[in-house]
Write a protein that binds this DNA or RNA. Structure first.
Lengths: 93, 93
DNA sequence: GTATTTTTGCCGAAAATTGTCAGGACTATT
DNA sequence: AATAGTCCTGACAATTTTCGGCAAAAATAC
C-alpha cells in the first residue's frame, strides 16, 4: 500500500529515484529497495517523502502503518479479523 | 492482553515464574520481563506456555498478535481505527 | 532468620535491519 | 555504437534493536 503509493506519486511527478534518495540522504539503491519492499521506510522518512512528493503526510503515514499491521498478521490470516477486532475494542478504553 | 492473561493463568495454577522459565529454557528474570512487557515473548514460546498452563494455544496466539498490532499503532492512536479498517479491507482480497 | 520467589539494572551476544558499494541491465539520445 | 541516465541486484559492512544471563536487592513464604 505505502510503497505502491509512493512509487505512483513519484512517477506522476516524474522524479527519479535519485531525487528521493538525495532528500532522504541515502543511497539510490536503498531507496529503490524501499520502493520494492526489500527495505522498510523509516518512519522519519515519511514527512520528507510527503514533502518532496507534495503528498499528504497523514495519508502516507496511514498507509505505512497499515503495512506494518498487515505484516504482523500476515502469517495468521485466519485469525486476523478477530485479532483486529480485539485491538479495536481494546483501544476504546 | 497477552501478558496479563498468562500472568493470570500462572497464578491460577499457582506456578512460580521459575517453572515457566524452565519450560522455556530461559532465566527467571527474563521470563519475569516478558510478563511485565519489558521483553517480547517469542512466538515459539506460545505453544510451550499454552501447554504448561493448560491453556488454549490459539487464544494465547490471538492475544499475542493483538499486542503486536497494538504496539504498531500505539504512537498514533488517533489514526488507529482508520488504519485497522484499511488493513481489514485489504485482507478481504 | 532462612529459603524461595520476585524484581531490577546492567552488560554482552546475537539477530535483524539498514545502508553502501560496485557493477550489470536497460533505454534513449546523439 | 558510444555516452548518459535511470533502474536493478547481490554481497558485504555498519548500525540498531532485541534478547538473555548474571548478580544482587527486595519482597514473601516457611
Amino acid at each position: 500500500m505505502f510503497i505502491e503509493r509512493i512509487k505512483e506519486l513519484r512517477e506522476e511527478r516524474q522524479l527519479p529515484l535519485r531525487k528521493l534518495a538525495a532528500a532522504l540522504d541515502i543511497d539510490s539503491a536503498t531507496y529503490w529497495k524501499i520502493e520494492k519492499g526489500e527495505r522498510r521506510a523509516r518512519k522519519e522518512y515519511i514527512p520528507i517523502i510527503a514533502n518532496i512528493l507534495h503528498a499528504d503526510e497523514t495519508e502516507l503515514l496511514k498507509l505505512w502503518l497499515a503495512d506494518q499491521v498487515a505484516a504482523v498478521v500476515a502469517d495468521e490470516k485466519e485469525l486476523s479479523n478477530e485479532v483486529l477486532s480485539m485491538v479495536k475494542q481494546n483501544l476504546e478504553k
